[in-house]
């Protein structure tokens, strides 16, 4: 059984917070549902515990996930980042899946460029999950904010995400979505128009 993999975890919210900060992320897309809690001990890396449930394939990966900030560019009106992300853990069958458990790992790269009006993000990842299979994915996300929200305002973004999962029945899919952002809370609601599935992402930073 080949995996049809992966989520857009890092593109949703910055995968590294401020020093001493915790972030909780929930994501649900056309293939999986993910919960991630990460802590940032340094400006250049974070460490998280992640559980990703592949609903149709009846297994989940529980992993320890480090993220490293490879490069950050600052400007008066923009910020851009390149991150390396990996994870090691255990893949386990769910819902009576008889395949048991096995070691799993993944590695990927995340890049984003953002102003107060425009967003561009890219994420690629490869996963190896033993007898559950392996697979790769990549996605691009573009966003536009109809107005520039100030501090503590409600920020609204119109976004579209295009993902490429070679092993999937529909290798390329498109998800228009809305991003709502206020203070430490981010909520995204979208719908995949190729493989009709809702996208629901939530991030809370504390």
């Amino acid at each position: 059984m080949l995996l049809m993999l992966l989520t857009s975890a890092a593109v949703v919210g910055r995968p590294i917070s401020y020093v001493g900060g915790w972030t909780f992320i929930e994501e649900s897309n056309r293939q999986s549902t993910t919960a991630l809690l990460h802590y940032t001990p340094s400006p250049s890396w974070s460490l998280g515990v992640r559980n990703e449930w592949f609903r149709d394939d009846d297994y989940a990966i529980t992993s320890l996930q480090p993220t490293y900030l490879l490069k950050r560019w600052f400007g008066q009106d923009y910020q851009a980042n390149v991150y390396l992300q990996g994870g090691l853990g255990l893949a386990s069958g769910t819902s009576g899946n008889p395949l048991g458990s096995t070691g799993a790992g993944y590695a990927g790269v995340i890049a984003d460029w953002e102003t107060r009006r425009f967003f561009l993000g890219y994420n690629a990842r490869y996963v190896e999950a033993g007898h559950f299979g392996d697979g790769a994915m990549q996605l691009v996300r573009m966003g536009w904010a109809p107005y520039e929200g100030d501090t503590r305002d409600l920020h609204t973004w119109l976004m579209v995400e295009v993902d490429h999962r070679p092993e999937s029945k529909d290798p390329v899919s498109v998800t228009p979505l809305l991003r709502f952002f206020q203070g430490p809370i981010l909520l995204e609601l979208g719908f995949n128009i190729v493989e009709p599935t809702p996208l629901i992402n939530f991030t809370y930073r504390f």
Binding site: G21, E114, T151, H155, G183, P184
Partner: peptide, 18 residues
């Protein structure tokens, strides 16, 4: 202080916290 790279509310939250 003029800050580079503050483009979203997460940025503001981070600075406020620190």
């Amino acid at each position: 202080a003029d800050v580079l790279g503050v483009v979203c509310d997460f940025c503001a939250v981070a600075m406020n916290k620190v």
